[in-house]
């Protein structure tokens, strides 16, 4: 008797998709916070801090996400630290995102004309006040499209968590396919679900770009 794809399998895929979303949200919030710190370090006044941040970025950007994931999952286990797959995946995605977002945002901060900081500092604002009130809002506008683009990429990268046994969308599809052997159907549906998750982000990015540009540079 062949086992075929049915609605309960579909429900299982939805369950996996939910965990994909949870993992993506964790990774984005944590990675965004860490990326902000990396951006601050990369644009710091101190040359030493800038250099240290650059080395961090170079190392992380040169390391496959899968390797980070293995270090977080198996590596910490060696020290007797039991890491649940969700936590290992979230940590490795966070570290990965911090380097990429930090570098993207650094570029956006530097894209704001130097004269803006000069004008703010000539009004006796501190460097930090000038950054928060003048540079950051303008950098955020520039940063929106590439940041959302990176979010889409990260959402798809969460599929790597399946290799440490975390049941997200890809792992769920794999489990189902193992019994039904209908790869085109099962992975086709999983792929469609990824698209459904990513498309709103892209659309949102486009609408943000439009609204943020109204009447302004």
């Amino acid at each position: 008797m062949d086992i075929v794809f049915n609605w309960s399998y579909f429900g299982y895929l939805l369950y996996g998709a939910m965990w994909t979303l949870v993992l993506s949200a964790c990774a984005f919030v944590l990675g965004g916070a860490a990326g902000f710190l990396v951006m601050l370090a990369r644009t710091a006044q101190s040359r030493l801090i800038r250099q240290i941040a650059l080395v961090y970025v170079e190392i992380i950007q040169g390391t496959p996400l899968l390797v980070l994931l293995f270090i977080a999952y198996f590596g910490l286990g060696v020290f007797g630290i039991e890491v649940p797959p969700l936590v290992a995946a979230a940590i490795s995605l966070m570290i990965n995102a911090s380097a990429f977002l930090g570098e993207i945002w650094k570029g956006c901060v530097e894209a704001v004309p130097r004269t803006q900081r000069e004008a703010a500092e000539c009004l006796a604002l501190t460097r930090w006040q000038a950054f928060v009130d003048v540079i950051l809002p303008q950098a955020a506008r520039i940063a929106t499209p590439p940041t959302v683009g990176f979010m889409v990429q990260m959402l798809k990268n969460t599929s790597l968590a399946s290799v440490v046994g975390f049941v997200e969308l890809t792992r769920a599809a794999q489990v189902i396919n193992n019994s039904t052997i209908q790869p085109f159907l099962v992975f086709g549906i999983a792929g469609t679900m990824y698209f459904v998750l990513c498309y709103p982000l892209t659309a949102w990015s486009r609408s943000l770009e439009r609204t943020l540009n109204v009447g302004r540079r």
């Binding site: 004269t115 803006q116 000069e118 004008a119 703010a120 000539c122 003048v134 809002p137 303008q138 506008r141 302004r216 540079r217």
Partner: peptide, 11 residues
């Protein structure tokens, strides 16, 4: 100080 290129805050 007032600059040649105004340098107003566009946002």
């Amino acid at each position: 100080i007032v600059f040649q290129s105004y340098n107003l805050f566009p946002h």
